[in-house]
Design a protein around this nucleic acid. Structure first.
Lengths: 133, 133
DNA sequence: TTCTGTTATGTTATTTTATAACGGACTCAA
DNA sequence: TTGAGTCCGTTATAAAATAACATAACAGAA
């Protein structure tokens, strides 16, 4: 089972930063945290991110222009990762919902739309921050 | 009923361009089409867009960094506008789905998440383009 | 081994998208 | 008539992403 292909050094470094980060990070945030490791150019980050996303190790949050490590175990199975993004604390909560996915696929099927990728991102205030306020 | 507040000249121009456009347009696309009307700066476009979006006349497509005129009559009622974006022809199809909305709200409620805005954008190939290929 | 195609790398420059910071003009009500 | 609010326009800049190019590392075929 070696579809477990090795990550390259840059990919490993970027993924590690994403895992450490409590919040979604922009490519430039990531770069700043990796200057110590010798990375200098945005492109190095973007390339690593593309590879990571391609393999399902990371996600891009379109509404934030930011990136997170994949948290869902079933985001491959379900094929759809959804996020709840807190505008107060900045954290993004990944979840996956079968009915949601079904509903989108149902619409697509009726319309003859062939889906390659779906983006579901809710913005608002997370439970913890609601209480805090 | 004067919540039908007047659009300003810039807002009107931008909305008009969006309505004419067959596809989502970037702010700079819009700007280019309005140079003839005397608009020169990106900010003029972004300001108009903010106002239009605020009033529900337009939507921002997060995964495209682009904008469209609102096509849905019920996107206020349903509170959620979803899009199917064709990567072949570039067109974006707005739709709204009550179950979808309910499902997201259900999740939010269980988690104590207070939603302010949701993004639902499917990418893929539209029916017409699937046939054509 | 040596050649060759593929993949990853690094660097510079540039493009694309979005906002900050400022001041002026106009309306409307006090 | 003045002062708050809103819209306007301009310049400059920040933030996000990619183009274009050259090099290195390596696996497998000849």
């Amino acid at each position: 089972m070696s579809s477990q292909k090795m990550l390259t050094r840059n990919q490993f470094l970027v993924l590690d930063v994403l895992k450490e980060g409590e919040k979604p990070l922009s490519a430039y945030d990531i770069l700043d945290r990796l200057r110590g490791e010798g990375l200098r150019a945005p492109l190095q980050i973007y390339r690593a991110l593309s590879a990571l996303i391609g393999r399902g190790h990371a996600h891009r949050l379109e509404s934030l222009n930011a990136f997170v490590a994949c948290a869902g175990k079933e985001c491959h199975k379900s094929g759809l990762a959804a996020f709840a993004i807190c505008e107060a604390c900045g954290q993004a909560n990944e979840f996956s919902d079968f009915v949601l996915r079904q509903r989108l696929e149902g619409w697509a099927e009726r319309e003859g739309f062939r889906t390659s990728h779906s983006v579901v991102e809710m913005h608002g205030t997370c439970g913890a921050c609601v209480i805090r306020s």
